[in-house]
Design a protein around this nucleic acid. Structure first.
Lengths: 357, 357
DNA sequence: ATGAAAGCGCTAACAT
DNA sequence: ATGTTAGCGCTTTCAT
């Protein structure tokens, strides 16, 4: 039986091949020079013994663990699991592995995770951060010159850390404008953001919106689109909901029952879309006859129901992959191109959008 | 500005505290004995310098990296992302981190991933393996005495590796029997398994079914339930579909159009459930009036549609968590309790099940 | 082309 | 209680 390869070291290989440790190392690394004879002997010995290089030892001396960390709110959330997939794909093809941590949006958990992962000497972090005023753990990373890329959300206090996210504003503009072009004038929006308290109302168009939360940015895009077409923003059509489908369901039920005059409804998030849809189904109002409906994220079920739901699709996989790619560039000290990346959303018109009647 | 904590070593702390390296190590590890004075000095020095222990170095000497690997087909798949969440939760609370790899059910990718992760000296593996005759990479792990737990699927060749999975047979029996108890006698099933070619037909009841694929086990449960109640298994009601929702959609459409006499339909997988549901919606047949319907996995959309779909819920999070717990026990050399674990499914009756009319 | 030796940061005997 | 020393498995000068 072959020896336990876990414990076969380069020393064993060297001995078996009848050469010195450094010769074996050279051959195995394919660096430096060695005679064909030595190469053959080493390779055969390694194979015979089932030698497996110890990446830990390698990392210790090289200073790189070839591992990156993904610190996300919840890998079971479809958005993040898709992003994680993109992330691992990109990492893998660069020869990196990925270590995951869930934060559940708890600042303390986030801090602790970052701490632990730093001790494991990951080469960099992709973090979808918890919103907080003083993200000390992340700041420390930056201070320690450990590469970091933010995913999906920026922290105001972390202005100089590159961000990879959806173009939230543009996405929302796209959806809203598509509705306007269909002829809609009274478009309702379901949002997690609170219009006035988050400065959306007074937000000057055109300047950097990175400091706002995604939800506020999406609301902003809606406002922009309306403004661009000379349409008023009516507060009664901005329906607020907490970040749960039950809350959205309740809010949309109320909107429908209120008898408000609107001909289209746009949901700014996957969870809100689910709740809104449930309210619509329960109310028994036919769409798009009663009003048009655009959901967020191309979730599987949106094509299962009838009519299939028109959605704004977010390139989740690409977001993760891009974040990883950017991080890897940083790790390789390619200092150029440290700006933010905003990927566009894709509008998928299906059966729930139509001209108003 | 504080020094880059990445490069602060225990030597620096020792020097700063005016003690020897080993004293510092003792204090930091909280092992051995040290005077209160030394303790204070070391802790303060560590804090002042922003010392971060190097887990890599620790792992090298201790032989444990405090990291486990999750080798899964696809983390973006809801089943596996939920399982991964359970896995990381359990690992985290034991002080372990998790490294993920996707295989896309490609044997070569799986092999390569296992190879790479082994080089990183993970302490163990949770693997949802790709089906293949000779899972050499996994066998090698076992041979090298690296702890492994299989998730969801067993490989025939890996009979002695512990498995954590759903009780596929029992789950299917549960759903089928619930239908029978409702009065249904002609129950159709949508399955990925092929009845005869996978030995389900001839499978003796009661013996270990672990070697069968999940899909075959679920089909077996259906057969068992029918048999138990003296109902015949009718081949025309066993509708086969590939593992895509389109295939299931097509198959169920055909079933409906065929005019076959059946009063209930049970889907044995999440993907098949989606396709079947789409076919039902398209055919415009009202359920449960036309026939009862039980789907697989408590997917979000199943509660969104109307009526909400009755489903067989799989404890995905618990599956992952249990796998991790078992693995950790193995890592700690708790050799007892190496048997398989089969978690029960939970039947959630909602609006699509009713007595036949 | 090859080998000897130092050292990455840490732990763990073993002295003192 | 504290310090010295010897590794863990590897890469990397530096000689030869």
């Amino acid at each position: 039986m072959a020896p336990r390869s876990q414990s076969v070291t380069i020393n064993d290989v060297a001995r078996e091949a009848g050469v010195s440790k450094s010769s074996a190392a050279r051959v195995l690394a394919g660096r430096g020079s060695s005679s064909p004879k030595t190469q053959k002997a080493v390779h055969e010995a390694a194979k015979r013994l089932g030698y497996r290089p110890n990446a830990l030892a390698k990392a210790m001396v090289s200073g790189s663990s070839k591992t990156i960390a993904a610190v996300l709110p919840d890998v079971a959330n479809p958005f993040f699991s898709a992003a994680l997939r993109g992330l691992t794909d990109a990492a893998r093809s660069a020869g990196f592995e990925v270590l995951v941590a869930n934060t559940d949006n708890d600042p303390d958990v986030e801090t602790r995770s970052i701490e632990l992962l730093t001790e494991k000497r990951v080469d960099g972090f992709v973090i979808a951060p918890v919103f907080q005023d003083e993200p000390d753990a992340i700041s420390r990373l930056v201070n320690d010159e450990i590469p970091v890329v933010l995913l999906d959300r920026r922290m105001p206090a972390l202005a100089d850390v590159p961000l990879v996210s959806l173009d939230h504003v543009g996405a929302s503009e796209l959806a809203t404008e598509s509705l306007i072009e269909l002829g809609h004038k009274r478009i309702a929006i379901v949002t997690e953001a609170v219009y006035d308290s988050q400065g959306v109302s007074g937000f000057p168009p055109g300047i950097d919106t990175g400091a706002l939360r995604p939800s506020a940015q999406r609301l902003l895009g809606y406002r922009n689109a309306l403004g661009k077409h000379g349409l008023p923003l009516e507060h009664d059509l901005v329906v607020h909901a907490e970040y749960t489908w039950r809350s959205a369901q309740k809010a949309v039920r109320r909107l429908i029952e209120s008898g408000q005059d609107f001909s289209a409804l746009f949901c700014t998030d996957a969870v809100l879309t689910a709740g809104a849809y449930k309210a619509i189904v329960e109310a028994g109002v036919p769409i798009p006859e009663t009003f048009s409906f655009i959901g967020f994220d191309d979730q599987e079920w949106t094509t299962l129901v009838s009519p299939a739901i028109s959605v704004l699709d977010q390139p989740r996989h690409a977001l993760g992959a891009t974040a990883a790619t950017r991080l890897l560039a940083q790790i390789r000290h390619i200092t150029a191109n440290q700006q933010d990346v905003r990927l566009p959303a894709n509008l998928i018109p299906r059966g729930t959008t139509a001209p108003p009647r």
